[in-house]
Each structure stands twice: as structure tokens, then as C-alpha cells.
Design a protein around this nucleic acid. Structure first.
Length: 476
RNA sequence: CGGGCUGUAGCGCAGUUGGUAGCGCGUUCGGUUCGGGACCGAAAGGCCGGCGGUUCAAACCCGCCCAGCCCGACCA
């Protein structure tokens, strides 16, 4: 078979690539570091978009669109911002056959162009808050790329909000972090830690960066969403002020938050197995595939039966009926397992006689015979069970691979064997953080938001009293 | 951007001391099949990643470039 998935145990990286390519989620593009999102990958992205967009709208946000091209001078206005992004910028220097007066940066993120506009739109506290999100593509020139996880161009959403007070902006930052957390856990079935980044890991231009982090099956961490409290940094850089209720002038307070097609990588690496993709029902573009099983003489009857079943289910489920008579049922079973469709229904002559169908779960392989009359209700329950089970399994995996290190030697030991998240005391000094990174390749993924008491433990590196319990891990 | 591996039919690979390329799967056509990746027969499919060099002659030797993967440095 041409379609062969390298087992996870043999080569995890190759397994991931094999899934993406063989499940036809994406393919390599002619330009280095770029990928084509194929229809099956894009359908998944559309499900993600719908889910997130619904949550954004429910929290009062609206969508808009800002340009791809940003004057180079804009990027340079916020000192930290330019320093952070300079190495990964793609810049247009020529257009219309002429050299441009001012080079145009292809957006790596849109804070600058958006805040240049907010300056025009905001005069009074009455203009606030502004709660805008945009869905778009961005370009960051990456040295080392991986399908969905890190590509030169990628799709994402970026929310940019403007507020009258610091407290309001802080509240918004945390609200959106909560939205990401809800989405990851309830839609993607991926449990996440939520917390704040250390200064060395925070967004260039932010006061504070919050994030959600998920553990993949190789025990590495994947940052799945970020929410930034920007303070007045961009308002000051773009001179965006407003008149307050008590007639004073103040700079506007800001947030920004984003999640990208990387979420697809998270879903793949959290749930899939050596047979292929495993998708959470809530986000699966197709929830149920019906595979009719027939011989020439039984084909008409079985297909008619299957079509009726499909038409019944179509009202409540995203369902596909595969009537193809060239591939064998066995071939189809493998193919749809590779594609990650949560439930397969097999219907053959024997089932038809008994008025039943065979339901097979993608996640466990478990088979059940269910009466056709109860198919809808049973499927509904099955989807819920799969969704819950995927989450619980991922949560157990994370719990089983989260450790508490008492000293530096233990930190290194846990990171190497078996790997995973390691909680340890941290004094807050960047030097201690840097030493861990240098010597173990692990970073502080976050400082948990639901703060754990340090209990008087020392910093795992220097031994001074710890300010926080930090979560260390190797990351994508 | 450094170190390593790889690049030959759509995919996976073979190709001897340099002599203009082969296997499996897939594809197309015909037929038989069909409850876990079916079988028989026939056929199509190649600028050997690209450019340059050595040679009477290069998939093979040399140089440069490009791409992919892995390991580092940098990042969603």
C-alpha cells in the first residue's frame, strides 16, 4: 500500500507528517515553508472557525478586515514589537514595476495597522470599547517549518480590542483566554493548562501574555492560543488618546488574542493513532460514514436501505454514504479510519434483515449492533461518548506525565524520562529560567493562573525562595 | 542559518566497474469479486530535483543551487 503510516513508536515526527499527507489534510507548496491546505484540512479549519467565531460573537465581538500590507514605519513604532518581529518579516520593496518609496511589510500580526486606524476612530470614552476580530492569513519567515505547526504563511484569527480602563482590558484578556480554553476542551477535546508567560516568552509589545498549553502524545507542549494584555503600549506608539468621563485625556488600553491553523496540529497530535487521524465529533467535518456491504445481486436493496438511513440521519448529523462499488468494504474501513471519521456504520444484507446497523467507533474500534429505529438517538449518545472519552484519555495522559521536581537534578530527570510537564519552584529570575533552557532545552511553558501555593519551596535552580510554581516542558 | 540524511513513473523503492532505466502499489480498459486495504488479463505512464563541469558517453564522477526530513540556534 502506498498509504502507510509510520507508527508513533518508530518515529513520532514522521508519524505526524504521514497523517497530514495521507489523510490529505495538507500538502507541501512550491514555496519553501508554505503549505496547501487541502479540502479535508480546510473543512476542519472551517469547523474550527465556526466554533470560535460563535464564541467571539457571544462575547460581543465583531469581525472586520484590515490590509495585508503594512507600511514599514508602522512596525517600527513600538520598540519591543519591531525588535521581536524584525527577523521574521517579509517585505515588499517593488510594485508596479518600480521601487516603492516606503517598503511594505506583509503582516506578521496586525497590531500596528489596526492601531493606526483606532487613532482615527477613537476620541471619547463613548467610542470605547472597540471589540474587533479578523480572520486572515499572516506571514512570518520561519527558519524551520512543520505542516500546520509552523509554516511561513498561516491562517489565524486575531482579536484587537480597545478599552477605557486598564481593568477592563485585563478582564477582556482573561475572558478571551477563557474562550480559548473552552474551545480547546469542549470542542477539540484537548485539555489545556492556562496561565501567564514569563517575560522572555511574552509577545513582543505586550505587557503580559497569557496562553493555553496542551500536551501532545510525545509529551511535548504545544501553545494553542495566546491572549495579550497590551496596556497602553500601542496606544502610546500610535498616539491614541481619548477623553475620559471626567474630561481628562488618557491613552487607550488594549488587548490582542490569536489562534491559528496550528490548532489542527494540536487535534492531530492529541488524538490520532497509528491507523490515522482521530477527530473529535464536534469538529469532524463528517461525523458518520455509512459503508454499504453488498454483492451484485444484493446491491440495489442494500444501497436503497443505506440511502434511507442516510436521509434519516442527515437532519441531525454530517453524514457521508459511500456507494462506490469498485473498492471493497475492507478498503473503505481503512480509508475512513485514516480520515478520522468518528463513527462508521456498516450495513449489509444480514443487518437489513434484522433491521439493524453495525456502528464502529473510530477511537476505540468498539462495535455495536443498533436497531435502525434507534440509530439517531444511539449515534447522538455515541458522539457524546467519543467526545468525552477523547478528552478524558488526553487528560489522563497529561496527568500521568506531569511531575513535581524538588530539585534541579529531578527536573532534568523528569524532562528526559519520561518527559512531560514538570512543576517546580521558580524565583522569578530570568537567569534561572535561561539556565534551564540552556541545559535542558525546556522552557517555562507558563505560570499557572490558578496559582498553586509555593508552600515555601525553593527555586529549582538557585535555591532562593520561589515566587511561583512554574510548569517546565519541551515545546513545539 | 549551521550539522546530518534524502531526491529515479502518482506513491514506495531498486539500478553492479559510467554505455540513454526497472520492480511493487496505484492509474486506465475488460472481466470476475465484495462483512477488514480482492483477483485475472491488457495498457498507459520518465528531461533520473535544477543548472553547470569531466567524458566518445553521466541516474551513476565533480561543483553550485533548490526542495523535503532529522538534530541544533530562532519563533504561533
Amino acid at each position: 500500500m502506498a498509504q502507510k503510516i509510520t507508527p508513533r513508536a518508530t518515529d513520532y515526527s514522521q508519524w505526524y507528517i504521514d497523517i497530514v499527507i495521507n489523510a490529505k489534510l495538507a500538502d507541501y507548496a512550491p514555496v519553501k515553508g508554505c503549505m496547501v491546505v487541502r479540502p479535508r484540512g480546510y473543512a476542519l479549519w472551517e469547523r474550527i472557525q465556526q466554533g470560535l467565531d460563535g464564541l467571539f460573537k457571544a462575547t460581543g465581538h465583531v469581525n472586520a478586515y484590515f490590509p495585508l500590507l503594512i507600511p514599514e514605519s508602522f512596525i517600527k513604532k513600538e520598540a519591543e514589537h519591531v525588535e521581536g518581529f524584525a527577523p521574521e518579516l517579509a517585505v515588499v520593496t517593488h510594485a508596479g514595476g518600480e521601487k516603492l518609496e516606503e517598503p511594505l511589510v506583509i503582516r506578521p500580526t496586525s497590531e500596528t495597522i489596526i492601531w493606526s486606524m483606532y487613532k482615527k476612530w477613537i476620541q471619547s470614552y463613548r467610542d470605547l470599547p472597540i471589540l474587533i476580530n479578523q480572520w486572515c492569513n499572516i506571514i512570518r519567515w520561519e527558519k524551520r517549518t512543520r505542516l500546520f505547526l509552523r509554516t511561513t504563511e498561516f491562517l489565524w484569527q486575531e482579536g484587537h480590542t480597545a478599552h477605557a480602563t486598564s481593568a477592563e482590558a485585563e478582564e477582556e484578556t482573561l475572558r478571551m483566554l477563557g474562550v480559548y480554553r473552552t474551545f480547546a476542551e469542549e470542542y477539540m477535546a484537548v485539555p489545556v493548562l492556562h496561565g501567564v508567560k514569563t517575560d522572555s516568552e511574552k509577545f513582543a509589545g505586550a505587557v503580559r501574555t497569557y496562553c493555553i498549553e496542551a500536551m501532545m502524545q510525545d509529551r511535548k507542549s504545544l501553545q494553542a492560543g495566546t491572549s495579550h494584555y497590551l496596556g497602553q503600549n500601542f496606544a502610546k506608539a500610535f498616539d491614541v488618546t481619548f477623553q475620559t468621563k471626567d474630561k481628562t485625556l488618557d491613552h487607550v488600553w488594549a488587548t490582542s488574542w490569536g489562534a491559528s491553523t496550528r490548532l489542527i496540529g494540536a487535534i492531530i497530535m492529541a488524538h490520532s493513532d497509528d491507523k490515522g487521524l482521530v477527530l473529535p465529533p464536534r469538529l469532524a467535518p463528517i461525523e458518520v460514514v455509512i459503508v454499504p456491504i453488498f454483492k451484485n445481486e444484493t446491491k440495489d436493496a442494500v444501497v436503497a436501505f443505506a440511502r434511507k438511513l442516510r436521509d434519516t440521519l442527515a437532519a441531525d448529523f454530517r453524514v457521508l454514504l459511500d456507494e462506490d462499488d469498485q473498492n471493497t468494504p475492507g478498503w473503505k474501513f481503512s480509508e475512513y479510519e485514516l480520515q478520522g471519521i468518528p463513527v462508521r456504520l456498516e450495513v449489509g444484507p444480514r443487518d437489513m434483515e434484522k433491521g439493524q446497523v453495525v456502528a464502529v467507533r473510530r477511537d476505540t474500534g468498539e462495535k455495536a449492533f443498533i436497531p435502525v429505529s434507534e440509530a439517531g438517538a444511539t449515534l447522538r449518545a455515541l458522539m457524546q461518548a467519543i467526545q468525552t472519552s477523547l478528552y478524558q484519555r488526553a487528560l489522563k495522559f497529561r496527568t500521568d506525565n506531569t511531575f513535581r521536581a524538588r530539585d534541579y537534578a529531578e527536573l532534568g530527570k523528569f524532562l528526559d524520562d519520561p518527559g512531560g510537564f514538570v512543576e517546580a519552584g521558580w524565583c522569578g529570575d530570568a537567569a534561572c529560567e535561561a539556565r534551564v533552557k540552556e541545559e535542558t532545552k525546556a522552557t517555562i511553558r507558563l505560570l499557572p493562573l490558578d496559582k498553586k501555593e509555593t508552600g515555601g519551596v525553593p527555586c529549582v535552580v538557585c535555591g532562593k525562595s520561589a515566587r511561583d510554581i512554574a510548569v517546565f516542558g519541551r515545546a513545539y
